[in-house]
Design a protein around this nucleic acid. Structure first.
Lengths: 341, 341
DNA sequence: CTGAAAGCGCTAACAA
DNA sequence: TTGTTAGCGCTTTCAG
């Protein structure tokens, strides 16, 4: 049976559309008798007001758009989960899009969403976008007064609410932990060197080293991209200099590094300690279990969603006091690092 | 700057709205001079037709809804990824919802989506829904002629396109593999005993046993729920009967079982072989690497999306020749099972 | 208590 | 070549 509209109902009872509308919305202006008849009929015919029409009328549709760079990365899944939870609570739906780390796909998606489809947007920038510093599409969004929350991979050029992790501190903490457990030759392996997040962590890494007067050794810094062969790079790294610790900038990288190191006969953590990022199942179940920096993805998602919905629902007030929320990371110590003395 | 509408543009040039509309859509009925002026202005002011209005007019919005039971399960993430890929290709957006294995949340979501928000729906049932066999909301969807594709967790009661895995065969294949490698006491550990998928795999398991004239031993069958302590159940299992193989019905279960078994001092695969489901990163990187049944999640997602979009775009033809696509699983052999003789 | 009319933003058939 | 009108489905004044 095809969808039934108010008009159909009105016709069936030979009343006007507006009467039918009021009856269904239980308006006091309508006689009880009529209301009951109409409501019963509506229920029977399974009438549902068309969202499409309501959306147009209300210029809103209780939907928020989310763009993440990569859904196969557990961190972003956690964030998504958090967003969904609070959005759902508050009666919002989610349009989720994946930028695949591509500037172009991100821009297209943004352009698409910038046309009334969503009430607000939660975005984490693609690496390419951060590298190129091309945030026009975001600026457009802001200019069009669509509430926007950036998380994790953010940009200073965009004026909006943000939820980030203290990546500088995270890099610093992890590196210091290596140092405190007696490691000296700490390698830094990053698949996201061009993102804000990667840069900040690197700065934290540098800072921790310099605090102990350890010079930065570029032989220990491995930045790689999608097309690089990590295995080869690791060989070069391990052959090129003594290494007793490795900081891997995302979960899968840390795990792969762990496996490669073990495959080459090193013992973890005795010969080499390893710390990863994103406290996911992989880190927990791999052997030896990985010490990781937890960014609390779910919490980030929840915060971003709360912040956004707040903005949406108080659209007029205080437009320009944007907040940046910094979520503290925590180091989850497991078996891939030596014990503190 | 606030959104600009056709009306604004029309007013600015003192023309009618329809003229403005045609000019912007580059209609041949409009003089080139005027078109150029208007288009330039529109571009400058960053005019974008309102999706909301277009949606109402076209009764369509190039959006498909997806409901999965659990987004923290890698299998569903893979499916989502596949769906997104083809949807994006064909210009569709995705509204993604999570049922959290809850019948109520699923019903609410379905009800919400059943009001013009989406052009079609891709759904995998929550376990609770399958257990209760309460598919009214789905029937409603079908009745309202909203194209629907069910995947993985499906229901016979709903008449629509489906994409499933041959779970019976998968259960059979995995069990047979154990048998062929010399295992005799094969345990079956399932967190989804009430879902279609779990049931079918169990039947495959039984079949494989009976083919070798091995009686089914209920001591070896462990069905557990969210609130059960798997650790306790595993102790009971291992203490209650000799066990030399365990089939875990999802990835995380298999991994947990693997860890527990090892923690109890068994050697894998020598004492106990283990096979899991969902060929994800976890299975690949855990030690020993898990032999798993791959359901090809991404491919399932792609198939479902293709099927759905096909339906959406050929809405009228052949309404009732629903197809069920069966995706073959494959056994990815790694180190948690003994070698074939 | 009920209905007519306007409007959300856009398009398209039909006039002029 | 441009404008008028109607309509997508619904709500909401404002009259009756």
């Amino acid at each position: 049976m095809k969808k039934i509209t108010l008009k159909d109902i009105a016709a069936h009872f030979l009343v006007s559309v507006s009467t039918a509308s009021k009856a269904i919305n239980d308006s006091h202006e309508i006689s009880v008798a009529l209301k009951e008849k109409i409501q019963a009929y509506a229920k029977d015919k399974n009438y549902k007001p068309s969202r499409l029409a309501l959306n147009l009328r209300n210029k809103s549709n209780k939907t928020i758009g989310v763009i993440v760079p990569n859904i196969l990365n557990y961190f972003f899944v956690q964030v998504l989960y958090g967003i969904e939870k609070v959005a759902n609570d508050k009666g919002y739906n989610i349009i989720s899009c994946i930028s695949d780390e591509s500037f172009e796909k991100e821009s297209k998606t943004l352009e698409f969403l910038d046309s009334g489809t969503v009430d607000g947007l939660i975005v984490s920038l693609s690496e390419e976008t951060q590298e190129k510093k091309r945030v026009e599409a975001l600026l457009e969004i802001v200019d069009n007064q669509i509430p926007l929350v950036l998380f994790d991979r953010v940009s200073d050029l965009v004026h909006c609410d943000k939820v980030v992790v203290d990546d500088f501190e995270a890099g610093h903490t992890a590196t210091s932990y290596f140092l405190d457990t007696g490691c000296k030759n700490i390698a830094f392996v990053s698949p996201i060197s061009k993102s804000s997040v990667g840069t900040l962590r690197f700065e934290g890494y540098q800072k921790a080293l310099s605090e102990k007067n350890i010079p930065l050794n570029y032989k220990l810094v491995v930045n790689f991209g999608k097309d690089d062969d990590l295995d080869v790079l690791m060989s070069i790294l391990l052959d090129g200099a003594p290494v007793d610790a490795i900081l891997g900038l995302d979960e899968i990288t840390a795990v792969k590094v762990l496996k490669m190191v073990i495959a080459r006969g090193y013992s973890v953590p005795d010969d080499i300690s390893i710390i990863g990022f994103t406290n996911g199942q992989l880190s927990e179940y791999v052997t030896p279990a990985l010490t990781t920096v937890s960014q609390h993805g779910k919490y980030i998602g929840e915060s971003a969603a709360k912040q956004l919905i707040e903005r949406i629902e108080n659209a007029n007030e205080g437009q320009f006091d944007f907040k940046t929320k910094v979520v503290k990371t925590s180091l989850v110590v497991r078996d891939s690092t030596r014990k503190l003395p």
